[in-house]
Design a protein around this nucleic acid. Structure first.
Length: 776
DNA sequence: GACGCTGGCGTTTTT
DNA sequence: CGCCAGCGTC
């Protein structure tokens, strides 16, 4: 047991604790991952079968990494551990045993978009006003109920909830919940909350099943316990009812998911439910400098609601926290990027040593721009992920529908894709028929003439045959997931449609679909991703339960600056950390304070941000920020006042960030006659410079950016814009280089220019609204 | 049913 | 500013 050598006393105690309930309160940077790793290894060395250990982590990636580390200690046995997120582990269990609740093993998983779309349909069908019954609001209420284990019937019979709904002017909520649940069930689909809710039902109503898993999982461990909700807690509690070998690791000071039902009460409940529980506190921080640890302590001390602990470090004192004041959000981007650039030069650091953390995903844009100008590679975690893009979701919907033909939301997505002439009216008829007759959409589609003799019967029969042929291919098992997937992509016409779209945007869509197919190939070829079958259904499940941190870099170049929200940074550490956007209303978030009046959670979030830093921490705020095209004045965050000033210092020697030569090429213009607004301060600002005119879109941004291939058209393109460009003009395009305008095509709705480019690129038809052109 | 235009509205964080 | 639902036209 060499691994005990490098551990301090409490860490050793935790590792060597074998039976009975155990709670580890682990301060930030106190080495909890090491403890969990070694404790698992230790259990196995003491003769526990890895099959009997269940380890629940916050991301699938964390599970994967921990599995690797455990493997290093105990070898191949680690493969047999059950590890993953709550959602992925219990989805797996529901695939086995969901039949007891009436689901087949092929059930679909609805993501938030699917859920909201279903709610929107239901609200419409019932003739309710969707301005009052906003899908968002309805969904949140349903989700909240499920997380408190309140089913639709309980919901309707609960006078307190009814009164609350009536007060909120949503008296139909109960009925909507009931219909929503029924429709999901009919579609053989579960949403994210259902995965936990149904696991609870399964364990509550089917003692034999519960018993099976209680015997299987003799040791249950939960990481990031402070972020579990009641539903999750009850699952682990039930599982460990017999063995009572429950081990949870968490830090109440880092609880940042109250908005989705996580509750510190779980920690208190645990003490009640397990009176003989051992509690171990890990208080020594190995990650950060003294200044950082103490500054973080000084912040979190303002919270009333917390467990007592004393986080300390024996690391060096380190430098002070630097504060950067910028005049605008764009200048903030420039200053931070320049600082990264100079730190790299002066200290010999790599891009991976840096992280930029912000409160909201939308803040990433200015940093993307400024980093790109300095040629610093970056990656963005979170935001709009690869798998949320339209073309990807479309193809995935095909897969979903082939595997589970009851999947109403997948059906709605693909029935008219590519265009088959089936409109909203026909789709609504089909889904309503299905709901009324209590049958699946497939039942209606496959026997369309029985239900509707309309003029679309032929088209729909054709569609049904197509799906049937795919289904046969999946079931024959002669072809692997990749072959099936690419067959579906081709035969559905999806790939062809994208291929025919010669716009820059269409091109990137096509590439994305190819990338998805590649990743399926990789999935099939990669030998060691657990013991599951390598079929399309497994791939789908992996994808739908992927956490944002799970997405990996597509290319081999991993030396990148990391940008993400503070929520996404949980559990990570970086040499240099920039916490940006330190402005009142943004952080702490105004929304948060309004809806929950809970400053303490925001403060914990701030605590999490600070404690990610190992050596250097910088914070920045802007005095003005662009919002909806307007400059908005900002106040510094109250959190800046809360830090003991002795840990703070204003950044000095920051040069004006970008030299003119490093700007994007001069002279590129947008083909628009719209006037540009000028900001009311004198620093040159990218908002009004050419950089802005060709800036990457926030919505089609790839998961990993830095390449210059995704730009989005302006939404406000008008016919007069084409006047700027004439046939015969010599132009330069940002991506394709120099060329000559052969023809301007103003027929139809798209205004296109056919341009002959020099070199091997050849002729391209460009939608003018993309405007990545410069007239020479 | 498809498509373009217009006006209203929005940004918290995530499985 | 940009998205998208809703409306009007073909």
């Amino acid at each position: 047991m060499d691994y005990l050598q490098g551990l301090n006393q409490p860490q050793q105690d935790a590792v060597q604790h074998i039976s009975g309930p155990l709670m580890i309160i682990a301060g930030a940077g106190s080495g909890k991952t090491r403890v969990l790793t070694y404790r698992t290894a230790h259990l196995i060395e003491k003769g526990v079968d890895p099959f009997q250990i269940l380890l629940l982590t916050f991301t699938n990636k964390a599970a994967g990494e921990m599995r690797e580390r455990i493997e290093k200690v105990i070898g191949n046995d680690a493969k047999n551990l059950w590890m993953g997120t709550f959602h992925s582990v219990f989805a797996k269990i529901l695939r086995f045993d969901g039949k007891h609740l009436g689901y087949t093993s092929d059930f679909s998983i609805y993501d938030t978009d699917d859920s909201k779309s279903l709610i929107r349909s239901i609200v419409k069908e019932r003739g309710l006003d969707d301005k009052i019954y906003k899908p968002n609001v309805v969904f949140n209420r349903i989700s909240g109920a499920k997380n408190r284990l309140i089913g639709p019937d309980d919901y309707m019979n609960n006078p307190i909830i009814s009164a609350d709904d009536t007060a909120a002017k949503l008296p139909e909520m109960g009925k909507l919940y009931k219909i929503y649940a029924t429709r999901c069930f009919q579609a053989n689909a579960m949403d994210f909350d259902d995965l936990l809710f149904n696991t609870n039902l399964l364990f509550r109503d089917h003692p034999a099943v519960l018993d099976k898993y209680q015997r299987k999982f003799k040791y249950v461990m939960v990481d990031e316990f402070q972020d579990t909700n009641v539903s999750q807690y009850l699952i682990v509690k039930k599982l460990s009812d017999i063995s009572r070998n429950l081990c949870v690791v968490g830090d109440d000071a880092q609880s940042i998911y109250a908005f989705r039902g996580a509750s510190i009460d779980n920690i208190l409940n645990l003490e009640k439910d397990y009176p003989n529980m051992t509690t171990i506190k890990l208080e020594q921080n190995y990650r950060s400098t003294q200044n950082i640890v103490e500054a973080a302590n000084s912040i979190i001390a303002k919270n009333k609601n917390q467990l007592k602990k004393n986080v300390f470090t024996e690391n060096e004192e380190g430098s002070l926290i630097e504060l950067i004041k910028a005049s605008s959000d764009n200048e903030e981007g420039r200053l931070v990027s320049t600082h990264i650039f100079e730190s790299k030069m002066n200290l010999g650091l790599r891009n991976t040593d840096f992280a930029i953390l912000y409160r909201t995903n939308a803040q990433s844009r200015t940093f993307e721009e400024s980093l790109r100008k300095l040629n610093i590679k970056y990656r963005i975690i979170g935001g709009l992920s690869f798998y949320q893009r339209r073309e990807i979701k479309d193809l995935l919907a095909y897969f979903r529908f082939v595997i589970n033909q009851n999947d109403e939301e997948a059906f709605k997505r693909i029935i008219n894709l590519p265009k088959r002439g089936i409109g909203d009216t026909t789709i609504a008829k089909i889904t309503i028929t299905a709901a009324e007759q209590q049958i699946s959409v497939w039942e209606v589609v496959a026997n369309i003439r029985q239900y509707q003799a309309g003029r679309f019967a032929d088209t729909i029969e054709g569609f049904a045959d197509l799906i049937k042929s795919f289904k046969i291919m999946v079931e024959s098992q002669k072809k692997d997931a990749y072959e099936v997937a690419s067959h579906i992509a081709k035969s559905s016409g999806l790939l062809r449609e994208l291929h025919d779209d010669k716009t820059v945007e269409g091109l990137s869509r096509y590439e994305n679909v190819q990338e998805l197919l590649n990743s399926i190939k990789e999935f099939v070829d990669n030998p060691d991703t657990g013991t599951d079958e390598k079929n399309l259904a497994t791939f789908l499940q992996n994808v739908s339960l992927m956490t944002t941190a799970d997405e990996d870099d597509p290319d081999g170049d991993n030396d990148r600056v990391t940008m993400m929200t503070i929520h996404g940074a949980k559990g990570l550490e970086f040499n240099h950390v920039y916490v940006v956007g330190m402005e009142e209303d943004l952080f702490p978030s105004q929304m948060m304070l309004q809806s929950r009046a809970d400053l303490e959670e925001e403060r914990r979030l701030f605590y999490v941000a600070i404690t990610r830093a190992e050596k250097k921490l910088m914070m920045s705020y802007a005095e003005t920020r662009y919002q909806w095209g307007r400059l908005k004045p900002c106040e510094p965050s109250r959190f800046l006042d809360e830090i003991d000033p002795k840990y703070l210092q204003f950044a000095k020697n920051i040069r004006r960030a970008v030299e003119d030569t490093q700007r994007l090429p001069q002279g590129f213009v947008r083909m628009s006659n719209r006037e540009q607004k000028m900001p009311d301060f004198n620093t040159p600002d990218t908002k009004t410079s050419v950089a802005n005119l060709i800036r990457p879109s926030t919505s089609t941004r790839p998961a990993v950016t830095g390449s210059a291939n995704t730009y989005k058209p302006s939404a406000d393109f008008t016919p007069s814009d084409t006047k700027n460009l004439a046939e015969g003009d010599r132009v330069e395009h940002l991506k394709f280089g120099f060329g000559k305008v052969k023809k301007i095509d103003t027929n139809g709705t798209d205004r296109k220019a056919i341009i002959q480019f020099e070199g091997t690129i050849g002729e391209k038809t460009l939608l003018l609204s993309f405007a990545k052109l410069r007239i020479l």
